[in-house]
Design a protein around this nucleic acid. Structure first.
Lengths: 261, 261
DNA sequence: TAGTGGTCTAGACCACACA
DNA sequence: GTGTGGTCTAGACCACTAC
């Protein structure tokens, strides 16, 4: 028989029972999303400890007054984030390790700002030029056609961190030098209604040329971290092509990955 | 009125109509997965060109004899892969740009092998040692407790590419030096039943020390690409901690990203 | 044998985009 | 308006795991 109401079993598995989930059906926020957020914060705050079982989806949905697919959608979004693991026949558990950031297509400006570094930007160049071969190929325009070139020096605490060279299709928008100095390029693109969708990146290293060394306050020959990136908007159109060099002594790429399944 | 059967409209949007979808309900492969694969290969082969609309989900499910949620699940999986874009009120479209690889937690060995480079590995060290502080912290074991240390030199075409230093919990498995020389570490872990789940990575650069230069056939002071990684299994337990250095002249990290939504 | 997640169905209503 | 995807429901049966 079903053991409904049988407290003697004293299941240790589900601290979820004590959690006060509050779902607001009048809110425009989807129910599965409300649930996912509350589960995530419960994990974040330790109310759901690593290894804890969530309890089966049927009971959970009954208790929350939601249908099972809705509950599954919430759980699935956290599985995708790497916070939960499902095992058929076993249950859904909180992952042990701390997963924080999946790799994001983030701008250097945002990275530094998030790290509390108070980045500053100096625009060295902002003009329209004929596209060189590599730029034309990356942006999908004809060689020699006009593109915007942007050269910026980024610093934190008064010390240079990176030299950024970016190319943009000419019709996208005109970027005010002032605005470029007060925020990041990606934020400007987003504000202009361009939603980035994907990007192709290459990260490498090389020795600094004399010019780069001078710009970045390094010695000639110092190791630099390099990144080339082409970013595409959600129609698949190239929105930006950039070649960046970072002082290896002051910057590194740091991120979390989930294994493809 | 509905325009069912009205051919005069000559909708140009859905080349999907001509596609021969074959769903096998007796197969153990889920229906949504069968559909997703066939859609993906249609995109791959150009039967569905970039910008093409898929046609609405209701009609599609009716035509395929599937329910709408099942069709949505198939479409969603391709959206997650970055092949399709959905727009409410508009439809589902094939993305223009070629999206190939999302960033994977791949091993260097696999990377090189995929690139047809025929990698070789020389094991320099494979023994048990007391864990140093950083290693102990990364693997979540006590400082001074026994761990496996692995030092390998990887080459392609007879030229060194990278020096790999890895640490593993001692109870995981014993790695035969022979097997290590014939395949990648991650493949061995997988074969031992360890499924990797996530990893934390830092990619940076620095100048080569004299020893590194000698090992990698570079000049002292040459720019090297560095990577530190801690990989976790699906219970969140650290499975591997590694510090790798790559010859910048022969290797770079190359990958595709999707923007988080 | 019992319990779990994995898959699937056949509907419903809503929010948003575009003409 | 009309059509699209976004969300949600209330069931069903299956496959796998553990006991």
């Amino acid at each position: 028989m079903a053991k409904t109401g049988d407290r003697s079993r004293a299941v240790p598995g589900s601290p979820l029972d004590a959690l006060p989930f509050a779902l607001d059906r009048t809110s425009p926020v989807p129910l599965y999303y409300q649930l996912a957020q509350q589960l995530e914060s419960a994990i974040e705050h330790g109310a759901l400890a690593p290894g804890n079982l969530l309890g089966n989806e049927i009971d959970l949905s009954a208790r929350l007054g939601l249908s099972r697919p809705t509950v599954r959608q919430a759980i699935q979004s956290l599985v995708d984030k790497g916070l939960l693991v499902r095992r058929r026949g076993v249950g859904t558990q909180v992952v042990h390790s701390q997963v924080k950031r999946p790799l994001e297509l983030s701008s250097l400006y945002d990275d530094l700002e998030t790290a509390g570094q108070g980045p500053t930007t100096h625009v060295l160049r902002n003009e329209r030029v004929p596209a060189a071969a590599d730029v034309a190929a990356a942006l999908g325009v004809a060689e020699g056609s006009e593109v915007i070139v942007l050269e910026r020096l980024r610093a934190t605490h008064g010390q240079p961190v990176a030299f950024l060279c970016n190319y943009l299709p000419p019709d996208l928008l005109d970027l005010g030098t002032q605005r470029l100095e007060s925020t990041g390029l990606y934020r400007l693109l987003r504000a202009a209604g361009i939603t980035l969708h994907s990007a192709r990146q290459t990260i490498g290293a090389r020795s600094a040329t004399a010019e780069e060394a001078a710009l970045l306050a390094e010695k000639a020959g110092a190791a630099l971290l390099t990144m080339q990136r082409t970013a595409y908007d959600d129609t698949g159109r190239p929105a930006e092509y950039g070649t960046h060099v970072y002082r290896a002594s002051r910057y590194a790429f740091d991120f979390q990955l989930l294994v493809r399944v």
